[in-house]
Write a protein that binds this DNA or RNA. Structure first.
Lengths: 198, 198
DNA sequence: CCGCTTATTTGACACCGTGTAAATTGTCAC
DNA sequence: GTGACAATTTACACGGTGTCAAATAAGCGG
């Protein structure tokens, strides 16, 4: 698999990324990626044994370049649970459009490939953990909407913030990113937040 | 394509249905369907020229057997917009688990096949129309939550009621169908319903 | 310049799933 | 029987993934 920091390897990752994130990135073949990277198809297999491992590497590459960790961690700095909720929704909701193409491909491949499925589930777990942190902070503040456990609220919030919902609202319904953030932020507050005491 | 009411045709449809709705119905091939129907692979192609047309026929078959139209239309009988909303959420939310496997396959195929995509979009349009009817009734009653147009509310409700959210909450998070209906019903009310006047 | 190593290319091929085609058997109606 | 039809068997074309082996560059120490 050659060494980690190979120039060709990086070119392949960037080419795959660009193709997947392109407007019509529905059917990206290994040969497409090779051609876009200016490399032979076999060179791709030289660096990534399977299509699944390539896609997983692309998501890691994108995360590293975009700095997801730092952006999502920022929501942890907020003081109140309410502020945490808003910050996390804004951070993740704002991140989705930047990784949508790659995420889409990974989800699709996950239906048949175990490695891709595991990679996407890891992603989901990270999101869920962010949701959990916000919900737990709300509960600590006594501001979690009644009638639901912390677990249930976490599940529901992670569903609200799913990539599929973003895709449906912005792609199918034609919402702008700004409208999406506003309405989903409001929905999350309605579902999670109890009215202020007193 | 043989005549409509052929016995073999029905057997193929039932076999495909059963396979798609099975717990591990992720990878259903034409040969699987043929074997399950007790028929040669070519006999399947004799009745359904492509995999996409077979899947589309299966969804129609399921709809006919389950009587989806009647069940969704029942929500129209409700008097108030509020009752309409509850009835529609219960009707569609209760229908999802019965068609989940077929819907899943149709969505997946739609990523590459135009016919399958069109069929699923038709389905989406029907759901959206049900959402629109409920939201319009709410607006007529002056009970639509402020700060959103009828169109936006319809979009949001159709997103909340998406198959993906059902799949995430019940399959990934392990919610029971009963819990799903209760929490999603509550979420829909929070998002759509203004507090009663006076 | 030689020989060694490593990255890449080229071309061929196996596998699998979809879809097509042709020849064959069985079964009814008339 | 003859004709029409349903279904079977066998074979093959195509596209996409993944494998393999041999040929070609490019780097570097001697």
């Amino acid at each position: 698999m050659s060494r980690e920091g190979s120039e060709t390897r990086r070119r392949i990752l960037d080419a795959a990324w660009e193709l997947l994130e392109a407007p019509e990135g529905g059917e990206v073949r290994m040969s497409d990626i090779a051609r876009a990277a200016g490399v032979s198809r076999q060179a791709v297999y030289l660096h990534f044994p399977t299509r699944a491992e390539l896609l997983v590497a692309v998501t890691r590459h994108v995360d590293a370049v975009k700095g997801v960790d730092a952006r999502l961690a920022a929501s942890r700095a907020a003081g109140s649970g309410e502020a945490r909720l808003d910050a996390f929704v804004a951070a993740w909701g704002g991140y989705i459009p930047e990784i949508h193409g790659v995420a889409r491909a990974l989800i699709a491949l996950g239906r048949t490939d175990a490695a891709a499925r595991a990679a996407w589930e890891g992603r989901l777990a990270a999101i869920r953990e962010g949701c959990h942190a916000a919900v737990a902070a709300l509960a600590r503040d006594g501001r979690l909407a009644p009638g639901q456990s912390v677990e249930e609220a976490t599940d529901l919030l992670s569903a609200i913030l799913s990539v599929h919902n973003w895709e449906h609202l912005t792609r199918v319904c034609g919402w702008s990113q700004e409208l999406y953030l506003r309405r989903i932020g409001a929905l999350a507050r309605q579902a999670m937040l109890a009215p202020p005491p007193g």
